[in-house]
Design a protein around this nucleic acid. Structure first.
Lengths: 130, 130
DNA sequence: GGTTGACCTTCTAGTGACTGGAAGCCTTAT
DNA sequence: ATAAGGCTTCCAGTCACTAGAAGGTCAACC
């Protein structure tokens, strides 16, 4: 299967698939003409990557997940631990964004938003809170 | 004021302050020995940048905010519009993360997390949902 | 057989916003 | 005189791609 078909199968851009080869994640065979030739297992790994990346796992984490995936003797606890750690990370990010949102919203609420220059948002950014 | 003192005053690493000069955000004078020499206004701009960056504004947005900040004839509506747009952006990110969290949490809930290899998280990543 | 046009290859370089490190001046204190 | 610490520039690396150029390959159509 050529890279274009693998791209269609997995939803990953061809550029990304080549990049995944460059960093050693999915190494396809080569056809006689030099074209990459993806077998079913390769496409499977690519799809696995697409899903784990879209769930927010980093490339390093995906590498680990892939190796667990290929490991017949893995403990599901190892996978679960990764997922739980990622949930915590997501929770931290959400909390940070919520606090950010609260601050922005508070600032915006106190700004008249007209054509005069006086602006409490600016005052805050400048460190001149009243 | 040398860069080290400016760094202490603003909480920004010296490297970051040099970077801000490189991209034309804060251009200090130079002392006779070639050292950067930050005046109060420079430190003010740096502090402004520190705050707006920590509120999630991109460098481009900070550039715009700084120019509004310096503009005697700005309309506070312009600043407020930026803040409101940023709030929407933050909301979108939060929604995305919440959906991510729900998926991860759902997957983890169905995984026994013991030393057996069977793992619904892996099954899902592999696209083999039951 | 020639010619499109789509597909493939490699390579280089750019993104955003820094961060790390090396090599070498400058200043201050001992 | 020397040691420590701060400053300078420049180069390279981060993360995960993404854009684009220059050129080889393939299938179809005339």
């Amino acid at each position: 299967m050529n890279i274009g078909d693998a791209s269609k199968e997995t939803g990953l851009p061809a550029k990304t698939i080549r990049y995944y080869e460059e960093i050693g994640l999915v190494m396809p065979d080569r056809a006689a003409n030099g074209y990459r030739d993806y077998c079913e297992a390769d496409v499977h790994r690519l799809r696995f990557l697409q899903r784990s990346r879209s769930l927010g796992f980093s490339i390093q984490e995906c590498r680990l997940l892939l190796s667990l995936y290929q490991d017949e003797n893995r403990a599901s606890a190892d996978v679960k631990a990764l997922a739980l750690a990622k949930i915590e990370e997501v929770d931290r990010k959400i909390a940070e964004l919520r606090s950010l949102r609260a601050t922005l919203s508070d600032l915006a609420a106190h700004c008249s938003g007209d054509d005069r220059p006086d602006c409490p948002i600016m005052d805050d950014l400048a460190g001149e809170a009243p």
